[in-house]
Design a protein around this nucleic acid. Sequence first.
DNA 1: TACCTTCCAGATATCAGATAAATATGATGC
DNA 2: GCATCATATTTATCTGATATCTGGAAGGTA
Lengths: 240, 240
Amino acid sequence: MALDIMFQFEGNLNLSQRMTHELGKAIVRGEYKQSGGLPTEAELCDKFGISRSAMREAVKMLSAKGLIISRPRQGIRILPEDNWNIFDADVLKWILDSNPSLLLLKEFLQMRMAIEPEAAALAAQYATTEDIENIKKAIIRMQAAHNGQDDPLQSDIAFHISILYASSNRFFIQFREFVQTALNVSIRYTNQLKGITVGDIQDHSRVLEAIEQKQPEAARAAAKHLIEEAQELIDTALNK
Amino acid sequence: MALDIMFQFEGNLNLSQRMTHELGKAIVRGEYKQSGGLPTEAELCDKFGISRSAMREAVKMLSAKGLIISRPRQGIRILPEDNWNIFDADVLKWILDSNPSLLLLKEFLQMRMAIEPEAAALAAQYATTEDIENIKKAIIRMQAAHNGQDDPLQSDIAFHISILYASSNRFFIQFREFVQTALNVSIRYTNQLKGITVGDIQDHSRVLEAIEQKQPEAARAAAKHLIEEAQELIDTALNK
DNA sequence: TACCTTCCAGATATCAGATAAATATGATGC
DNA sequence: GCATCATATTTATCTGATATCTGGAAGGTA
């Protein structure tokens, strides 16, 4: 059956989860925007050849993420984009897959510019010794990556996430997937997987030092500097 | 039946949605943390006297929000708090209801301090005339509230949200519910519904002026100033 | 002993079909 | 014109059967 082919790369997820991704991606892609909204529950079941329970569970998951609403007599309606939980990792992924653009990347960087310097400043006030230990480990990974013994991107991500954890604020910590996604996207655009230079390690270490010495302003400035470099890369790409 | 009483204040939601809130609140409250995790699907159905379909849909919605995971042979397990989508409006509400604390309020303000000044700076660069019109309307509402002709809290919220919209960045705009919740919580703690003073209106107007004149740095500073005032209120409350 | 495979029990996942409840729309009556 | 009502359509809920997954026990082998 068609489903087997359609879902063959979706991994270990169960049927309703695969259906959630399938529908979620289609909605974000705008597939049902013009065609007068989504089909009814029953029509969707027919179309994908699955039972109503599985379909309903998928629909419920998408409503939980703010994408749709389902009501008797009205059917399943797509909610305005404002309503989508774009900090949900799934929704974010679907948006990126459907509409990858430099504009979106710019928005990512604007958000990182708000979050990360402030997180670094908080880390300088509240980081525990364990938090600092984790930041150090990330720096060491970056050095290893510089020597070809670790993955450049993953070590970079580990560093930025360790700062979020060190902020000791659960809201900042929640941004770890966002930052991870943002960094992965950046790579996709600056599309050669650039290695980590000695300069990069120095710049990142400055954040660590400021946190260790409990200097919020210096930490903020150092973290800001890291993102400014990425922003410049994008701005030149946008003007190209 | 017990359900009728339990859910009597839950409004127009359907059964699976009410169940979602009920379970979500209980999980966040930590009710199932010690008692060896959640009961099985079947036991939950018995306990609440509802059918498996309704229960399963609730479980799916909670997994979509990152609170639980449900797998054959393992049952329904609560995921670590790190995994919860705390920017989801429901989850945020449950957390606030279950564990209202000054610490949480402080975390709210730290996050607002990251978001709002940066949003104001972006607004100074990108706001449309319509965006600015909306900010003006909010200021006018605050003046009306000062004269007793509008709600002080609602007009204040409207102002802060209008700044987020003016940033023209979908990620910042997504914070509107977060900021709304944060402001509502603040009121709960500073517990007299303080009226809006002439000084407040001046301080808020400075943000508007900086945005109109396209001065990002001034906008950032003015927005920062607004939150600093709230932070001082909390810090004195914490030391009391 | 240690490891590997097989099998089983217990839980969720999926299906099917019936009935209940909600609501947009058009019909009706004044 | 307006309120009220009837109805058809769609989701919501329940029920029970079957399929599938998976942790751990049982047993075999080197």
